[in-house]
Design a protein around this nucleic acid. Structure first.
Lengths: 221, 221
DNA sequence: GAGCTTTTTTGACTTAGGTCAAGGAAAGTT
DNA sequence: AACTTTCCTTGACCTAAGTCAAAAAAGCTC
């Protein structure tokens, strides 16, 4: 499913749009391929358009003056990113980088804005996308500020169980160091917490596979 | 300026709309008055519409199981809040409470959605509002995760200097305890940091007035 | 599969900021 | 002005998580 039309037709952003509109949208897409580790944009760059992941994975992140990194989102196939400048007219608020070899769809700003103005359903879908993202941010702030690292890890494991539709075990889709950056911790701390949770009989860790042994006690970390 | 038409006409959300559309919008507004401390909605409540502050101040916040509070936003006159459920159809992601005696405008969901669908400019304004909010959240996550409390306080002081258009001193518009909840700290810690910054000659604190004595050194906290 | 690089783990140590408890200071009320 | 309530500060103490350094494990490449 590496085909542009497939990706946009199945994305939440373009969901429910008539075929002729999808064709319009497809016409303005610029495809880009980037290898693992490639920067896609930097905080402060002018936003000339937004992106959608066709295949692969992209992280959106902030960095501190001393190089520590906080991941804001990890986006996979069908998910748009970099929309803030399109609608607010300001530069990108954060950096984007490919976590894997990635196929990107780029939507140039001016053309896309014309489409949005002409299509209330598309505008409405975009509003839904941004609203969902606000909700996610609210949860992330809650996690960072009101929970300790074990609680944040537990949340993430439950999120993966949901996503992977498996109550027994989950597969980490990113390296543990990146997970630490997502949870607002260091890799050392995360490693120690995996250990502790194992010792307490909550989980079993085998490389990138985490077996969840005690849902109840994991939930109230 | 406690009049509905004045408020909506000067808000960013309804900026640039023709008078006849403003009249339409005004018609569906329901005015509500709440005293200081009144809950406006709770996390998890179904969102039957969104609000705009006409006068006063409202905080949007999350609470932890043990009662600690993290403020996500503080909204003043002309600022809308509670839009997430309108566009994403899910319950409110956080709580809202009046920080002062407050005049609110309520926009019922269904009627407002009709207006948005009929008006590309209104849809576009709303997209800009949500995009700005995403940017703010990204900054807040950066502050919480990548800066220590003194750095977060410094950011907030610079934000107030900008807002109050004064390079010499700022007036805290909220109690220090609430400021602590906004910065992700306790009031004890915040108090100690005010002390330390005073001892270091960065600021002078007189009740709710903070004199900024050394911009340069305050900036790199 | 030997030799890289990158990622993860472990140990010893430090520290920012939280908690608990008790006073003070403001601010609103009668 | 006295009273009550809310807000802010201070001191003593504790702990979650960071830092630094080094080793171990896992992935790649030729």
């Amino acid at each position: 499913m590496n085909n542009t039309r497939e990706i946009i037709a199945h994305s939440l952003l373009f969901d429910g749009l008539p075929p002729e509109q999808l064709a319009e949208i497809e016409k303005l897409v610029i495809k880009k391929h980037v290898v693992k580790g490639t920067p896609i944009f930097f905080e402060g760059d002018p936003g000339l358009g937004f992106y959608m992941v066709a295949s692969g994975k992209v992280k959106i992140f902030k960095t501190s003056f001393d190089g520590k990194e906080q991941i804001l989102h990890i986006f996979g196939p069908g998910e748009p990113f970099g929309e803030v400048p399109v609608f607010h007219g300001t530069p990108f608020p954060a950096n984007a980088e490919a976590l894997t070899s990635t196929e990107l769809l780029f939507f140039p700003r001016a053309e896309f804005v014309d489409l949005i103005i002409a299509s209330p359903s598309l505008a409405f879908n975009m509003l839904a996308v941004l609203a969902l993202r606000l909700r996610r941010f609210a949860t992330q702030i809650e996690n960072l500020s009101l929970k300790e690292v074990p609680g944040r890890l537990a949340s993430y494991l439950f999120f993966l169980m949901e996503e992977q539709n498996n109550q027994e075990w989950v597969t980490l889709d990113i390296p543990k160091g990146q997970l630490a950056n997502l949870l607002g911790a260091t890799s050392e701390t995360l490693s120690r917490i995996f250990n502790k949770m194992h010792d307490e009989g909550l989980i079993r860790v085998e490389g990138k596979t985490i077996f969840v042994l005690d849902h109840q006690r994991l939930r109230d970390r």
